[in-house]
Design a protein around this nucleic acid. Sequence first.
DNA 1: GCTGAGACTGGAAGCGCTTCCAGAATGTCG
DNA 2: CGACATTCTGGAAGCGCTTCCAGTCTCAGC
Lengths: 347, 347
Amino acid sequence: MLRTKGTGSQMTASTPRRQPTLDEVAERAGVSRSAASRVINKAPHVSRATRDAVERAIKEMGYLPNRTARALATRQTGIVALAVSHDDPQLFADPFFAQVIVGVSAALEETDLHLLLCLASSGRGRFRLTNLLRTRGVDGLMLMPLHGDDPLTRLVAQAGVPVVYGGRPWHVQPQWYVDSDNVGGARLATEYLAGLGRTRIAAITGQMSTDVGEARYRGYREAMIIAGLTPHGTAEGDFTEAGGAAAMRSLLASHPDLDAVFAASDKMAAGALRVLTNSGRSVPADVAVVGFDDVGIAEHTAPPLTTIHQSIQALGKEMARMLIAVIGGEEPTSLILPTRLVRRESA
Amino acid sequence: MLRTKGTGSQMTASTPRRQPTLDEVAERAGVSRSAASRVINKAPHVSRATRDAVERAIKEMGYLPNRTARALATRQTGIVALAVSHDDPQLFADPFFAQVIVGVSAALEETDLHLLLCLASSGRGRFRLTNLLRTRGVDGLMLMPLHGDDPLTRLVAQAGVPVVYGGRPWHVQPQWYVDSDNVGGARLATEYLAGLGRTRIAAITGQMSTDVGEARYRGYREAMIIAGLTPHGTAEGDFTEAGGAAAMRSLLASHPDLDAVFAASDKMAAGALRVLTNSGRSVPADVAVVGFDDVGIAEHTAPPLTTIHQSIQALGKEMARMLIAVIGGEEPTSLILPTRLVRRESA
DNA sequence: GCTGAGACTGGAAGCGCTTCCAGAATGTCG
DNA sequence: CGACATTCTGGAAGCGCTTCCAGTCTCAGC
């Protein structure tokens, strides 16, 4: 590892002039500290003269209120956390999270809340998070539970700060959440396959011990029933490409005559696509495939994947908005965001 | 948009019992607040008896020190910020950032610092960031300057908190930075192409108004000179796939006989690959291509891309470590992280 | 001119913690 | 056993802000 000596030429921090305090501002303006505080907080009962004097002093001194002191007095930190929980920190690299963050940031940008990011993968990470909550380090939490029964959901329940869920933990109905319409999306996908005239439609599900795995499978079943079809093979994957491939292989073994596959995620669909192609089947001629998510790879598979689109960015944005509302003392209702079918070439 | 009423059944926050304060702990332990504080901070001059009493009280009451109060007293927030600056917030979705974040998080996990994420794209975002710094909202900043002359570098210089750069801003040598060895990597790539016996090696550069664009081009030139070759066409791209394609087209027009291309990013290489294939040339038989970055797409191009690997995660980790050191009063030296060639099929 | 309702103001008491300091307690040694 | 160095201790003064409250001031209305 090369080491180069920083020169600090032009970029050394300039004189670390202590920031002026409210007292100093008040003194300069010739008023009391309380008066100055009122001006800053745009509180009522401030005379024109006082306001002007304080505002001039503020401008002249370049005053900015100290965040921490304000936080202590108001018991509001002005910070909300987004926690992502998964055993494999590497999984955070999924573009999914970037989208969530972009959405959350967009919503926060309009407020003066800042975003703290917690990758609570390890036990240590979870510990840090719960500590953060109990020590009143943040005003609220957005949580993305990825496991079926994430231990975090329990830890967080008694944290004393509002928690908004992105997606739902398994078999639990949080007070506040925003989720994609997984059931509806899966139904859409299946209906579409049925509408294409396919009758032997198999499903590759996600883990059935997660809410999204279960919900997407439910949507598939419901649509099959409505279409008057019977499920033609089901294999459980794990939302990964490898898992999708394995599921597809077992499906081909048990139902070699299938003519369509609904995969509960694009990654699994991508794996399935590979296996189908390798087995000599052509997609979509022999077998039509529809995925779910439309984030990242769907456009880049061969052939490009017809899939169910969900706006992850919108999900992030709504989570943040909901949290802001809760913090503000409102009682927002939870949200289910719509999904839509995106036609490409695999079906 | 469907709306469902949250039931809050099992997940309502339990009694929001006020957290005990240090005073209460001290009282319960029968000692003064100062004594209790000393125990908590593992300060010297605490008798065994006092320590035991306080620790028991802490355990019994489930005491955890209030972060904000502590921050006010110590003037340390325990929070560091990672700021990403780019006009297009969408660009944050690049897996690059996820890697940085994973690296940073890994380093922070061992401390009790938390990570604040700032997407300072808009003017508003920049304003929020500078405000955060001046209001003493964070103890330090990690900055990824993406433009050539990002306005942020200036704003941040007088912020009064330590700043560590990831990559270097253009034509400025920050006091603390960690960067990939862009020159060395580009040299590696070019040497490799020359070693393959290619002699008519063109370059697709990034914006020459960025440090990385310039550095990678410099590496290419240096290697060419050392190999006794003369640059065989240079076109400036913008690090995007489309830009790479355009550059490749202009290169083919001016130097139709080129037999190798060094592209200063994988995305540009991907674009170039497409153009080359469409022009009827085969890669690597007719034209060998080497990219740079090895994050995201390099494995998925056709053919898979030989490229220069840089560990973005390591970069994030080192940035965080460096910032921690600076905050701790040390004077770390800046770092340049090594790169290495990854052979795939395009060269 | 007097009254009472507002509008305004500054003093003071927090928010919950750290840290300095003077003094009390303990121990050591000749 | 006294002198002195150590170790401990609690009181008090912050950190920089908000907010309650009891006053002061202004002014319409009678």
